[in-house]
């Protein structure tokens, strides 16, 4: 058992720990020494006073005046973004037009067309092949289609619920 009296700093450390961590630790000395217990109680009262609402408040019109200024925050970035997009788009279009005027684009255009034609040849029969496959299954595809639709529905419902009842961010 320690019979040394606690310093003010030690008492404040105990109270700080208790108010932050909630650990109800009290040194044995504090339980047995009336002098330290009295100082502890005085600090405890001081802490309670410091944590109490000091009673400062703003006029009732404060909230409305502030809410009137809030659109400034939300519209300003949107306006900035729109302006940025318009300027960027315009600059991009001008650059493309300039390049087209200066360079000969015919070989590039021909090559692009060839690539597109090749893709068309590959992907063209794909829908027919899928239909053939489904016909081949002879009704066995229904569970897959129903399952897919159910998953899609669940995802949509989840998105709707998240919008309506947002989760707190941790």
């Amino acid at each position: 058992m320690n019979n040394e009296h606690l310093s003010d700093e030690q008492i404040m450390e105990i109270l700080d720990d208790r108010s932050r961590s909630g650990i109800p630790f009290l040194p044995w000395h504090l339980r047995t020494c009336c002098r330290c217990a009295e100082r502890y109680r005085a600090f405890q009262r001081l802490y309670e006073g410091l944590a109490a609402d000091p009673g400062f408040d703003l006029p009732p019109a404060f909230v409305d005046a502030l809410l009137d200024r809030i659109p400034e925050i939300h519209s300003a970035p949107t306006r900035k973004r729109s302006l940025g997009l318009a300027l960027g788009g315009g600059a991009g279009a001008l650059a493309v037009l300039g390049l087209m005027a200066l360079a000969d684009w015919r070989p590039t255009a021909a090559a692009t067309l060839e690539v597109l034609r090749t893709l068309g040849r590959i992907l063209g029969p794909l829908p027919d092949r899928i239909l053939d496959f489904l016909a081949h299954l002879n009704g066995g595809a229904e569970p897959f289609l129903l399952g897919g639709a159910a998953l899609l529905g669940a995802a949509l419902l989840d998105r709707l619920l998240r919008r309506r009842f947002p989760q707190p961010q941790r």
């Binding site: 109270l15 208790r18 108010s19 932050r20 961590s21 909630g22 650990i23 109800p24 009290l26 504090l30 339980r31 217990a37 502890y40 109680r41 405890q44 802490y47 309670e48 944590a51």
Partner: peptide, 8 residues
């Protein structure tokens, strides 16, 4: 001894 609120 009087307890104080533990968690703010």
């Amino acid at each position: 001894m009087e307890e104080i609120p533990s968690c703010p």
